[in-house]
């Protein structure tokens, strides 16, 4: 076997690749929440930032493909790992005590599936219309028919439906649970477990709670204010 397939077909290699894709997604999420939060502070700033992200060639043709690759890899490898982990215990216990590990750590598949379902909704809501407008209809202006910047209006419009807000809130609660285990766990997978680990756990826990909370706040804020 080649070095690449030898390394990344092993259980530890696959876990390290999962951790790396996860850390990339964690950075992306921070950027995403920062841009979205602008919509609460200033519609103009949000429009500007969205237009930049949506039309900058580096973001569109370098970062976006890497992001899609990381998302797809994280899901596919996650399902593959779960399948092989389940196969490692074909006969289940009649009595199982789960008290020694957190719910989050034992149910990454459940939180992951909810996040996947959310991503389908999220892509239908924003990504598909965005790609259609820009690359199929060829409208790169970022303007509405009336000549205003369209991004803020599109965002606000999506959060008028209470069912969508509820779906977003549920998905972000599950994302928080996923991150509470996953973020700090990725450090352990990459071999970092030392005197900095207690601080890493505090920072990752803060991230896992604050970032989804801000997303929830933005959804509810626009639902209430418009």
């Amino acid at each position: 076997m080649s070095w690449f397939s030898d390394t990344f077909s092993s259980s530890i290699g696959r876990k390290i690749a999962m951790a790396l894709s996860a850390l990339f997604l964690v950075i992306f999420l921070l950027l995403h929440v920062a841009v979205n939060f602008l919509s609460v502070i200033s519609p103009d700033a949000f429009n500007e930032a969205s237009h930049f992200m949506g039309t900058n060639p580096l973001v569109q043709f370098l970062m976006q493909p890497i992001l899609i690759l990381a998302v797809v890899y994280h899901f596919v490898a996650g399902f593959a790992l779960e399948a092989s982990n389940r196969a490692a215990r074909p006969v289940k216990y009649a009595m199982k005590s789960n008290k020694n590990a957190s719910w989050m750590s034992q149910n990454m598949m459940i939180s992951g599936l909810v996040i996947l379902a959310f991503l389908v909704l999220h892509f239908m809501d924003f990504w598909v219309p965005e790609i259609t407008t820009k690359y199929i209809e060829g409208d790169m202006s970022g303007l509405t028919v009336a000549g205003d910047m369209r991004y803020y209006e599109e965002l606000v419009h999506r959060f008028q439906n209470p069912m969508r807000v509820v779906a977003y809130v549920v998905a972000f609660v599950l994302l928080a649970l996923h991150l509470l285990h996953g973020f700090q766990s990725s450090f352990q997978t990459m071999g970092v477990n030392n005197k900095f680990t207690p601080s890493i756990k505090k920072i990752t826990n803060a991230y896992a709670i604050v970032v989804p909370l801000v997303f929830i706040f933005i959804a509810i804020y626009h639902f209430i204010n418009h």
């Binding site: 530890i12 876990k15 790992l81 092989s84 389940r86 490692a88 590990a101 034992q106």
Partner: peptide
Amino acid sequence: MVAQMDAEGFGACTNTGA
């Protein structure tokens, strides 16, 4: 040792701490 561990059919670590 990791290659043998995988060949024996053990699962991967997901850091649950159990």
